Amino acid sequence: MIKALIVGVSEYTLGAGCKNLPLCLNDIQAMKKALISGLAVKESNVLVLGENKVVNIDDFISTFNGVINSVDTSDTFIFYFSGHGAE
């Protein structure tokens, strides 16, 4: 079974020092569609964060841990991120 977590951060707080990336919303929508249509992943196995353009750390950690705890050794886990990277 394939399970996926798709994360897209389009809007950043002023203190983050990063410019907003409005096209990340398009990225996560396209990835969700590709997984469901192209790989026949069940929609219930595709979790998406960032549809409201913002992802807070608590939601990310909670969702990530939930997905990881549901993945079996025979599953394939796909993590996709669209946004700024940092060191």
Rank of each mutant, 00 (worst) to 15 (best):
M1D: 12
I2M: 13
K3R: 14
K3V: 02
A4T: 11
V7N: 03
V7C: 13
G8P: 07
V9I: 15
S10A: 15
E11M: 11
E11L: 09
A16C: 10
G17F: 12
G17L: 13
C18S: 12
K19G: 14
N20C: 14
L21W: 08
L21F: 09
P22E: 08
L23N: 14
L23C: 09
L23E: 15
L23V: 11
C24N: 12
C24P: 08
L25R: 11
D27K: 06
D27V: 15
I28K: 01
Q29T: 10
Q29E: 15
A30M: 11
M31R: 12
M31A: 12
M31K: 09
M31C: 08
M31G: 00
K32I: 00
K32C: 02
K33I: 03
A34Y: 05
A34V: 04
L35G: 05
I36E: 03
G38Y: 02
L39P: 00
N45P: 10
N45L: 10
N45A: 11
N45S: 15
L47R: 14
G50D: 06
G50W: 00
G50T: 06
E51H: 01
N52R: 15
K53N: 13
V54C: 03
V55I: 12
V55F: 09
V55D: 07
D59H: 08
F60S: 02
I61K: 13
I61Y: 03
I61S: 00
S62M: 02
S62F: 11
T63V: 11
T63Y: 11
T63P: 04
F64M: 04
F64I: 06
F64P: 00
F64W: 06
N65H: 08
G66R: 03
G66Y: 04
G66Q: 05
G66S: 09
G66K: 09
V67G: 01
I68A: 12
N69S: 15
S70G: 08
V71T: 12
V71N: 08
D72Q: 15
D72V: 07
T73G: 13
S74Q: 03
S74L: 04
D75H: 08
D75N: 09
T76K: 10
T76C: 10
I78G: 00
Y80A: 05
S82N: 05
S82R: 06
H84D: 03
H84I: 01
G85R: 05
A86N: 13
A86E: 14
A86P: 00
E87I: 09
E87L: 07
